[in-house]
Amino acid sequence: MTQTGDASVREQLVRLKEAILNGDAKAAAEAAAILKEKGLQPLEVVNQAIKPAMDEMGKRYERLEAFLPDLVLAGEAAQEALRVILPKEGEESFIKGKVVIGTIYGDIHDIGKNIVAAMLSANGYKIIDLGNDVPPERYVEVAKKEGAHIIGMSCLLTPSMYYMRDVIRKLKEENIRDRFYVIIGGAAVYPDWAKEIGADGWAKDAERAVQLCDALMEKGKELPKPVILGEWR
């Protein structure tokens, strides 16, 4: 196994981190491919380059040194690197959990959802991204098929938030509600809405969405629901 102390490996880790911060998906994929070739394990690449880069981008965003387009591009570059380093076989042994994610029916706002997906990927989750304007039954159908652990729904338009309730209702109708954690986020939804519709969690932003998934995957059965991370405003 290659040591991460190896100078050329260190150089590629820095290159990968910079590529993500620059939103350069091609450079990120190239650096990731070299690291894979040198024998680095996916978790090492995530912990030493992808996650720190995404964390740094989050901090720049909070300091108004980066803007949403930068976050979106960084997320895309991170996803590209992950596609390269994650093994095609035996992927499950690496991932923390599978998340089916999408922007709810009637809503096409996907920037926040994409950032959450990128952050979850960078933190070891396998993401099945359904895109936007996703009908309630589609979440359920794909979550069942993929054996997902978590269903994540995002919403920015208030008329669409009501469809989130339909997802949970459908899970109950099929007697599979306990099989998945359901989490929600986005500007239109708030902690009390999570409680009202019977979701398992709500997070204010992408960083907290990762913490929420970690908490649910580690001790979800013991936690009182919904788990609320952050304040809505």
Binding site: V72, L73, E76, I111
Partner: peptide
Amino acid sequence: AGYLLGPSATNLMMR
């Protein structure tokens, strides 16, 4: 951004 390209694609195109 809302309807022709979509929010994410517009952000990417902007960069």
